[in-house]
């Protein structure tokens, strides 16, 4: 609710001081990640190349969803529907991919397009409804969470779709020098997200809306358009996330993705993006998703019980938000 000078600043006029602040903010999260890695590196196997491959594989889906979630949270919104929409996109794509008589390459291509289109559909729905009637996106996406889940169950009659083309299955486990191909795709998406948010007018306006919607409106920006755009971008990423899920696990089912929205929100928040909007970055989100992934992996290698693991993950989320409060004060001073 505090207005900083950033709100009305035109694109490209960032001072050296604010750049330093941004770097400091992300460095903080980076240090946390490195500290975590150092702690876990004392357990055997943690730094082995196959374990690094595992962690990166396990981080990928959450990372892709978190990039989209960053856009939505930056404008002060939230998207609770991503897990259900992922499931809907996956069953649509799975249905297309297993259509009889299609050439495997054509089937995979059409499936990918249909997953993204389905994601865009739900993104538009979320954006249009929340922006047009000025309904909190929390409520709207709670509704679409149920719509998407119900639709996924309806389309499949609650059954699991499996047996995708062998080439698609192989693509999902491809690695380059130990780095999973799917993770590299996610990294490209992070780079695109970073570019859009920091190097384009479009991105700066999104920050502006998150900081002070009214000021952005008075500055002549079409706030309605930007809000719908943010949710639609999130939808595109959910569609891509669905294809990545299918490539990794070789199934599509209407009951997958339950709770994925919470992991994505956690990654964004741990990554230093403010829940009230206007502050944060996709690079932070990348680090946040890695922290969650490293924690889940390291705690199993340490041999901690499932219940302890769940508790520690909870503590880390709270700790991240508290640290963020201090960082905010520090960088403002």
């Amino acid at each position: 609710m505090d207005t900083t000078d950033l709100t009305t600043a035109p694109a490209g006029s960032k001072t050296i001081a604010t750049t330093t602040k941004t770097v400091l903010r992300e460095a903080g999260i980076g240090i946390a990640l490195i500290a975590l890695i150092i702690v876990f590196s004392f357990t055997p196997h943690f730094l082995s190349s196959s374990n690094v491959t595992n962690i990166l594989t396990q981080v990928t889906i959450n990372l892709v969803l978190s990039i989209g979630m960053t856009f939505v949270i930056l404008i002060g919104g939230i998207d609770l529907s991503v897990g259900s929409v992922l499931s809907f996109c996956a069953v649509v794509a799975g249905t297309v991919m297993t259509l009889p008589g299609l050439d495997p390459a054509v089937a995979v291509f059409l499936a990918t397009i249909s997953a993204i289109v389905a994601g865009i559909g739900f993104g538009l729905l979320n954006g249009l409804i929340s922006a047009w009637w000025a309904i909190p996106s929390f409520i709207v996406t709670l509704g679409t969470l149920n719509i998407a889940r119900g639709a996924a169950l309806q389309v499949t009659n609650a059954s699991t779709i499996y047996s995708f083309p062998a080439a698609f299955n192989a693509f999902g486990s491809q690695t380059f020098y130990g780095i999973p191909l799917l993770f590299l795709i996610a990294l490209v998406l992070v780079a695109i997200g970073w570019f859009v948010l920091t190097k384009t007018v479009f991105g700066r306006v999104l920050y502006g809306i998150g900081n002070n919607e009214e000021a952005a409106r008075l500055a002549g920006h079409n706030v309605f358009f930007y809000k719908v755009a943010a949710f639609t971008i999130c939808g595109v990423l959910v569609g891509i996330g669905a294809i990545i899920y299918m490539a990794r696990l070789n199934i599509a089912s209407p009951i997958i993705g339950i709770g994925f929205e919470l992991n994505a929100i956690a990654a964004v928040i741990i990554g230093g993006t403010s829940l009230s909007g206007g502050r944060g970055s996709v690079v932070g989100t990348l680090l946040g998703a890695c922290i969650i992934g490293v924690l889940a992996n390291g705690l199993i290698l340490l041999g901690l019980s499932d219940f302890m693991r769940q508790m520690i993950t909870g503590f880390v989320i709270i700790l991240a938000v508290i640290l963020d409060k201090y960082r905010e004060r520090l960088t403002k001073a």
């Binding site: 055997p44 374990n51 594989t57 696990l249 992996n297 290698l301 041999g303 499932d306």
Partner: peptide, 25 residues
């Protein structure tokens, strides 16, 4: 060697088992 929950779920089982396999090759 170990016994863990994956809450009946495919994705979680994939993650949990990969990590178990790292701990116990």
């Amino acid at each position: 060697l170990d016994s863990r929950t994956a809450h009946w779920e495919t994705e979680e089982a994939n993650t949990v088992f990969s990590n178990m396999l790292t701990a116990h090759p």
